[in-house]
């Protein structure tokens, strides 16, 4: 590992537990590089996760790290940010962690526009429990609990976040890493709730069940299916089917939650 990145890792905990070719390591690397580019104060950064393979990431990262319960990272993170708005908060979460069991916390954190950067390690599957379908598993894909093909429709996390009130929304992939780092930097600089949906690969469970036996095949799929927001805007719904639209979807300035609460304190204390 690059010397200047070493201080961001708990090097004695590496190598990480992730399978060969698992995209979680790529996203974690991108997060750390974005933090390094922004020169954030390490002791004022707090990284919170839920449960899942992806949620193990904070354990390898040398910051204030909190590995909570399945789906609840945003709830814990909300308490931290409310109590100490000076801390920079990242939530690292899996697609199941974020959008299934944690779906309620997700939409409400977005609605409040609390200053938390949420990065979803979206591998379209429950990795840690061995490959069951998640709310992000595409229709007709196979999973251990969808042996005949998935009949559930999947979320579009970016649309979900935006309509819930997130004020920065973007999608990146583990193939387009330089762009991913830029997006993470923007999300971190954004004041308010930012969501980054990162299209990720789980070769072990999603790949094997869906005729992509190697991480390379899975990466190729991302490469083939990705289109930028700009080109997507010129494509028909039919042309867009199955495509991964990447880039920034939404950015707006809206009062941030803890700043609003600071005003509540002022009011309560008799200011105006």
């Amino acid at each position: 590992m690059r010397k200047e990145l070493q201080k961001y890792f708990r090097n004695d905990k590496l190598p990480h537990i992730w399978c060969p070719g698992c995209g979680h390591g790529i996203i974690t690397g991108a997060v750390v590089r974005a933090i390094d580019n922004l020169k954030l104060n390490q002791s004022k950064v707090c990284i919170v996760s839920g449960i899942g393979c992806s949620s193990r990431a904070p354990g390898y990262m040398n910051f204030n790290t909190l590995h909570t319960t399945h789906g609840r990272a945003l709830a814990f993170a909300t308490g931290i940010k409310m109590a100490n708005p000076d801390l920079k908060i990242l939530v690292l979460t899996g697609d199941g962690d974020c959008s299934a069991i944690g779906g309620n916390h997700f939409i409400h954190a977005a609605r409040r526009n609390i200053d938390i950067t949420t990065i979803v390690f979206n591998n379209s599957i429950y990795g840690m429990t061995g490959g069951q379908y998640s709310p992000m598993t595409p229709k007709a894909a196979f999973a251990t609990t969808a042996p005949y093909g998935n009949i559930d429709r999947n979320f579009d996390l970016c649309k979900l976040a935006q309509s819930a009130g997130a004020t920065y929304v973007a999608r990146g992939t583990v193939f387009h890493v330089p762009q991913l780092i830029k997006l993470i930097e923007k999300a971190l600089k954004h004041k308010g709730f930012s969501l980054l949906d990162v299209v990720d690969i789980c070769p072990t469970y999603f790949g094997r069940r869906n005729k992509m036996s190697s991480p390379i095949a899975m990466m190729n799929k991302i490469r083939e299916m990705s289109v930028t927001v700009r080109s997507a805007s010129k494509m028909s719904e039919e042309e867009l089917s199955g495509k991964i639209v990447i880039g920034e979807f939404h950015e707006e300035r809206v009062p941030e939650y803890t700043e609003e609460y600071a005003k509540v304190i002022e009011k309560a204390q008799g200011g105006n």
Binding site: G25, I26, G29, R33
Partner: peptide
């Protein structure tokens, strides 16, 4: 271009003169 370094899930590659 450092793409290999950025895409290595295990931080096993360093590209460049510096480090």
């Amino acid at each position: 271009c450092k793409l290999c370094e950025l895409r290595c899930p295990d931080y096993a590659i360093i590209v460049g003169g510096e480090n």
